[in-house]
Structure formats: C-alpha cells, structure tokens
C-alpha cells in the first residue's frame, strides 16, 4: 500500500468536487478551523489484504448546500439540508473512498470498499494519518484518512 500525503489527499478531494459538481475548492486558511461549524459527518471503511482504513468527511452547512445546489441545478436556498445534505455527504465519501483506493493500490490491487455511513459529530474520529481541510465558496469540508493493521495481520 502506498502512503498518501496531505497534498495528495487535497488534490483528490479537489478533483472529485470539480469533476462531480464543478465545485472549486482551495486548501483552507490556517484559521478556518476556528469558524468551522460542522453539521454532517460520514465515514467509509476500506479493507486491504492486511490493513483496514477509514475515510471520514465532516462538512458545514454552507459547503453541503453549495455542493447539492451545484449537483441538482437549484439555488442554494432551495436545498433541504436534512434530505440532500445527508445524501451528498454519503455519496462524496463513496467517491473519495474510490479515489483513495486507487491512489493506495492502483487498479490491480483489490481493496474492498464498505458502504458509506453517517457518523455522530460528537463521537471521536480515529487518529488521522492524513487530513485536509478545503474551502469552497460557501463553506468548508474536512477529510481525514486513518489506517490500521487488520486484526488478522496483528494476530
């Protein structure tokens, strides 16, 4: 498994957002964390031959509305956060997990992808090996990648 750097993760996130929904993002400023008010979190587990990893996405309302608005072709104020926000952060986890999987193992290595799940914002996230925070026009998205040896390998 190839390691992923923060810069690579940022690029994967930016590419996924641009290609899927024409949403352009930049790395967030250092002080963005202070004003970040997350409303949804999703995660997806990846499984390799001797490791498991989790990709975790955390987004604020502005980011989710911008992304959903762009995908659906509606105004941001027409986006329903309960319905669209949940759906979009799950699908984005799926898309990014696919991109991370390809970056980790190329197209010849089998890496199992789980199904995306919503996570509790209050619950602690696994310690991130790699992370990035990106800024879109209306909000922020934080993406973390953490990896651990599988129990099978540890045994």
């Amino acid at each position: 498994m190839r390691p992923i750097t923060n810069d690579q993760l940022t690029e994967l996130v930016a590419t996924a957002l641009e290609r899927t929904a024409f949403v352009l993002v930049d790395p967030a400023e250092d002080d963005a964390e202070a004003s970040f008010a997350p409303v949804r979190r999703s995660s997806l587990r990846l499984t390799g031959s001797d490791w498991t990893g989790v990709i975790t996405l955390t987004a604020d309302e502005g980011f989710l509305c911008e992304l959903a608005s762009s995908l659906l072709g509606v105004d941001e104020n027409e986006v329903e956060l309960d319905e669209h926000g949940q759906d979009i952060i799950l699908e984005l986890a799926n898309i990014l997990a696919g991109s991370v999987s390809l970056a980790l193992g190329g197209d010849k290595t089998h890496i199992g992808l789980g199904l995306p799940e919503l996570s509790d914002l209050a619950a602690p996230t696994p310690e991130a090996e790699t992370s990035t925070m990106v800024a879109a026009e209306s909000g922020y998205l934080n993406v973390q990648w953490s990896v651990a040896a599988s129990s099978k390998a540890a045994a």
Partner: peptide, 12 residues
C-alpha cells in the same frame, strides 16, 4: 444507484 442525489444528477 443508491444515492438519490447522484440519480438526480445522472437524470439531468
């Protein structure tokens, strides 16, 4: 597709 929002985007 299990994602409603992706189905909507593909429909467009």
């Amino acid at each position: 597709d299990d994602s409603r929002i992706i189905r909507t985007a593909i429909k467009k």
